[in-house]
Structures are given as structure tokens and as C-alpha cells.
Design a protein around this nucleic acid. Sequence first.
DNA 1: GGCAAGCCTTGACCCAGATCAACCGGGATC
DNA 2: GATCCCGGTTGATCTGGGTCAAGGCTTGCC
Lengths: 246, 246
Amino acid sequence: MNAPALSQTRCGDCPIRHRAVCARCNADELNELDAIKYYRTYEAGQPIIWSGDVMTFVGSVVSGIASLTQTMEDGRTQMVGLLLPSDFVGRPGREVAAYDVAATTDVVMCCFRRKPFEELMERTPHIANRLLQMTLDELDAAREWMLVLGRKTAREKIASLLLIIARRDASLTPRGATNRMVFDLPLTREAMADYLGLTLETVSRQISALKRDGVIELEGKRHVTVPDMHLLMEEAGDDSDGGFPG
Amino acid sequence: MNAPALSQTRCGDCPIRHRAVCARCNADELNELDAIKYYRTYEAGQPIIWSGDVMTFVGSVVSGIASLTQTMEDGRTQMVGLLLPSDFVGRPGREVAAYDVAATTDVVMCCFRRKPFEELMERTPHIANRLLQMTLDELDAAREWMLVLGRKTAREKIASLLLIIARRDASLTPRGATNRMVFDLPLTREAMADYLGLTLETVSRQISALKRDGVIELEGKRHVTVPDMHLLMEEAGDDSDGGFPG
DNA sequence: GGCAAGCCTTGACCCAGATCAACCGGGATC
DNA sequence: GATCCCGGTTGATCTGGGTCAAGGCTTGCC
């Protein structure tokens, strides 16, 4: 993991400066944030927050991937959010965490003490507006995901997840007009199953099937090559082609 | 339907005044809203907005119930939101609608022309803050629903939906400590199926099963009595008891 | 080198819910 | 009063994905 050196990163140098909740802040506002911020790291697999915990901080994912999950009493779990760098954790105004948050890979968080952050937000429309924008985006993503969970087949679910991961990578490393795409899966089969509302066996089988049918190529268990993104999109049952060249 | 007389309702008299996007506005701000608002009515079953349409307005549901749905090319549909009185329709800053919006019952909408509304929002934190709050609530509801779609059985899904409707009614007509609850289903079996990611046949069968098992009583096809809300909660696999007396 | 733990794959079987189809009942239309 | 719809119910059958079980491949530890 390429974690920045801790507790000395200046906001100006921050890799998520232009995408996180602080994206619209001016220099003065950044200084105020700086005063209440601190960095924390979590190893892959570690919990960040338990549902029901008192929230002492909110914050942004700086690097790595974290997951938001809900659990029923009998142990069934559903992932309800995948937090990527620049995504926000915590809800201003909420005392108690509603979901489990865990580090899927090694994670660096930029944390703000909750109370001061809430006060700052009260008088800083730049932050509130950015958070509104981000929340609306998350709501869209959640609704997209409801279609996946409610109506797609196992194969389509897998293809949809691969598509999301591929698009994320594409947005981080923009490239020319190419159909080909290579990336690493940041999730275990079990985590994929939790995200997709499937069992890990079904995830494994469908990945094998997509490989057998030439939709993807696998090197090891995590390294994926998509020879033709359009084919993958068809498999996902996805008409909106997400900006890939037609 | 008890639609208010149109185009003459003053904001001060509005039934959703204290819950909608305008909830925190002062008198001056209400006047500004007043200037760009107009009412529209839709009959049950009618479309309000088609996905892909240019959004000329945003607005609030004043009375009735509307639904947000997503459709795949092959016709599979998933409801991704149930809009109740005071809920907001449209996304400021978005040119083109992302979902189909349709009137499930007769609906009255309080519409704002989009551009003026966006400008007003820019300079009115009371509106932006309220919208943030409402969006965060919707996001929570969407995540709750992801658990339902991804991990619950058909019976649990039906129970969960009944619970949501019952709670909504309870919040509109607060009452003392009672386990008993009576309400009307505002959705057809098909709409419930679209919401739950099921077929209408399965919805019908599971409702019959819940009735046979005494969890609910039915009068006609829509009028429901829940003799014991706690039993219904157990059926929904829901530990959080939503404020019902223990 | 041997062994255990994680993560993943694959096979055999089963079942919840989808699909296909028949039918019911009430309200509108003629 | 006959007919047609529309929303809903119920039955019979099929199947996608869950469940249970047996390994395989790495990695790390002794």
C-alpha cells in the first residue's frame, strides 16, 4: 500500500484533496479542518467502526478500500457500501453508527473529531454543499445497486461488480479509446458474495463461467483482464455504457 | 384523495410545511419559493417523469404516493424508491432524470422550476441543509432496502414492506402504546413485487401465508390489520423495533 | 520438509421462488 | 344482464442458486 507518511500530510498535498468532502474549501477553511484532523491506519480485515458504537469522528478514506455492511441477528450479512478513496465515513448529526465499517484492504483515513466538524459544517456552506453532492452520488449508486440485487442473475451480478471495479480503475488511470482493461480484484470471493447477495460458491462458479466463456481472463485469483469491455457490459445487462468508446 | 385546492395554497397552510425541503425556511425564503412554485396533480398510474427526460422542475410530494423505478432493456423493473408526502423529487444540478417517476395513488406535487430553485439553493443554506438531511435519510432507507433485497426471504420481504407502511402510518397518526395496527396497502401486488424483487405470484402467496398464520388479517385485498406488531417484526427478521412499545 | 490455515474451486443434491396456466370476483361498459 | 378488464389467487412444474461436502493451491510457521 502506498500510505502517505502519517500526521504530517498537509491538505494541499493530499491525494484526495480535489474529490473529498473538503474539495471546495478555500485556504482558510482548510486550515480550520487541519486543526481538527488526524490520520489513522487500519490493516486489511480490521474493523473501523461497529454498528451501534458512539461515533467520535467522521472522515474520508485517503487510500485503500473499506466496506459498509449490515448484519442480521442470525448472521446473514449484506454489504451496503464500498468506500473508495475520497469517500466519506459517518453522518454529521448522528451520534451512533448505523453500519459496520471495516477495512477491506489496508486503509488510511483522514479523521475529523465529530463535534468540531459538525460546528464547522454549520458555518461552512462549501463543506455542506460538497457533502450534499457526495451523498446524492452515493444515493444514485445505492439505487443502481438495488436493481442489481433485486433483478439481476448471478452472472449479471458478477459482471456488474467487475464493471464497477473496472470503471473505478479507468477513472483513476484514464486512457485512450481501448476496449481492453486490466485490474486487480480488491475483494475476496466472500466479500463479493456479501456485496452481491450471493454465496461465495456461486461467486466462484460464475467467475469460472465468465472465464470459460472468454468474457474475462484470470491470472491467479485476483488479477483480471477484460478483453472486451462491451462484452462485459452486455453480460451485466447494462445499457448505459459508462463512457466507454462505442 | 384529499387534494388541496390548487394554485392557491399558501406555504403557511401547507400540510408538509414542516417536513419538506422548505422545512427550515423563514418567511422571506418562503416568499421566494412561493414565486417559483406551482402545483400539479397526477392520477394514479400516470407517469410524472420518464428516465432520460430533461428535468424542467424539481419538487415535493404534497399528498399521495409516487414511485421511483429503474427498468432494464428486457423489461425487468426494480422500484428504487417510494415517495411519500414531503419527499423530494429531482436532483439539483442534474439536467436529465435518472429514474422513472410515476404516481402510485393520485398525487399532488409542489413543483419548483429547476433553474430558479438551484439558484435559490445556492444562496439559501436553509434549503441546502434540509436537502442534505433528507438525502442522508433516503440513503439510510436505500441501504436498509439493500439488506432486504439481498438477504431476506420472500416472507421476510413482505413482512418488511408491511412494517414500513405500518410505521409510516404510525408516524402520521401517532397513538399510545398499542401492538395493534390497521392500514391500507397503497400498492398493487405487482408494485409490491417490483419493490421487493419478487414476482407478483410470490407476493400473493406470501401474503396469503402470513394471513393463514395469523400474522395479519385481511379485509378485501388492501385493508390490513396487524394484531401484533412485534410478531410482524420477528417475521421481518428485524431486530431494531422502530419505536414500538416493548 | 511437514503441517495448518486461508482462500478458492468443483461436484452432488435440494429447495425457494420463478414460470406457466387456470380461474375468481368486482366494477365498468354496452 | 352479458361481456370484458383488471387485479388478485392458486396450482403444477421447473430451475437458478443455495447447501453440504470434498479437495486444491498458497503462504507461513514449526
